[in-house]
Design a protein around this nucleic acid. Sequence first.
DNA 1: TAAAAATACTCCATAGGTATTTTAT
DNA 2: ATAAAATACCTATGGAGTATTTTTA
Lengths: 299, 299
Amino acid sequence: MTLEQLRSFIKIAEMESFSMAANAVHLSQPSVSCQIIALEKELGTKLFDRLGKRIVLTKAGEILLQHAGIMVESEKKARLAINDILGIRKGEIKLGSSNIPGAYILLPFIQRFCKENPCVKIFSSIGDTLSIAQEVIDGGLDLGVIGSKINEDQLLYFDFIEDVMALALNASHPLAQKTSISLEEFLALPFIIREEGSGSRKAIEDELNKKGIRLNELNIVFQLGNTEAIKQGIKAGLGAAVISLCAILDEVKFGLMRHVAVEGLSFKRKFYIILHKTRSAFPLVEYFKGFLLENRQGL
Amino acid sequence: MTLEQLRSFIKIAEMESFSMAANAVHLSQPSVSCQIIALEKELGTKLFDRLGKRIVLTKAGEILLQHAGIMVESEKKARLAINDILGIRKGEIKLGSSNIPGAYILLPFIQRFCKENPCVKIFSSIGDTLSIAQEVIDGGLDLGVIGSKINEDQLLYFDFIEDVMALALNASHPLAQKTSISLEEFLALPFIIREEGSGSRKAIEDELNKKGIRLNELNIVFQLGNTEAIKQGIKAGLGAAVISLCAILDEVKFGLMRHVAVEGLSFKRKFYIILHKTRSAFPLVEYFKGFLLENRQGL
DNA sequence: TAAAAATACTCCATAGGTATTTTAT
DNA sequence: ATAAAATACCTATGGAGTATTTTTA
């Protein structure tokens, strides 16, 4: 019986699904399946009744769930208490991030972290990928969040979250009623794009290149320097753009924009947490990094 | 952080010694040392101050100790509760053992097990190694405890405890005042020995053979059929015998016998728990076996 | 047929072992 | 000198992954 097995077990019981729980604990579905089978073998009893797609805790499973909760809670408490006496949860973090994470993703993380750790101050700055990376290298920033891998010899990269982008249209655009459009329709659209060096532009370019399409085959009508400007462009009806879904949540919600899929294309990219490779992060920064990674699935 | 690490950690804190704790949890000293180092690295702080030979919990160690206790306790409770609803802690166990374990070793185990598991009945019988093994093979016994390995193709062996033997003398014997005698003195002594086929006799014979001594080089004056008879023989002054220390605890305590070491000889043997190899033990028997192994260090 | 879980297998990390060195009494 | 902990090194188990099959709604 390991704490990892118990964590998976608890998540499965909560979510009533092996695969969703696997996702939540950042393991593959077969791995959590294995963990539970191992637990069941060790305890000599089934923990879940597999009723086809439905999953129900057995009596033994319910009993284990209570104790498992106590165990993983105790572990968390021990860590927190130890960090407290070490003074790890006090101090300042200089955080830098590129546009999308800085404006749309990190805020809830920072809010919750500061609430849970009231003696920590976080200074958050936004910049382009290159300058954030350079500042982490120079020591001006403790930790960065960026969307592509550069200077890998000097920086440590940790997978953070996957940013899903889609083609966003003014809600009144005729194609905006469809859920999916063809490649031809896409190529014909008046298109707004970010400046060179932008992480989103690179992600779009890469995906197009996979299909053998070059960026200048698009009908590019504007090139704008930040996400907010692109949103204004779409709302003004100047054109369409591929943009992070997290940046247009409100616009979609209030019926100003819509997003559609493009057949054969899937725009997405990873954001990474970066740390200096040789200069070891002080404990508070490690702790904050752990917090980001632990909560990356949903928050 | 694993429960195994925490169990070792707790034992170390209790015993204030890495090597004693290693012994108690049945691991090597370097292994528990590794476990603690791993824990310390993971938590980012020392858990013990190593003040030379003295070992003291740090503040962080004290905090961890509290929570670690809760975790391992919860695990134990979960196991017990699950076993209860499975009905594992009810039923009968037919237990067979050879002389020494049956008469001197197993009793406290059985007593405590029955106290902790009041719905379990244990039927304990004593016989010679051969017949116990045969009965386990035939299914007349669920579990056996014997002192040598026979029928290894049909039986599963688990190391149980090490039985230490020594040369026992009547307290009034001149050599009984020494703590150790020479090999020559030993060979000259009138000697009482068990019958052929006895486990203790075999252990003695093996140890002598290692030094190139054959059994009939001893001055054997009696051959007796059980341990109790040999004890009576020693008390009557008929001769000396190599006998399990656990069989003469009271006699030594009350000054009737003494035991001395023989230079260059170390009489000891292992007792094994045996189960049938193919017929799988029912859960209660597995549980009892686990209990024996868990508590083998001291009880 | 489409999803979810189980199985088969492969590979690597790590836990534990032995042997040895270091350290402190 | 001795006893205890740390270190070095090796091996083997098992945990996690990918690919695939089975199952059932």
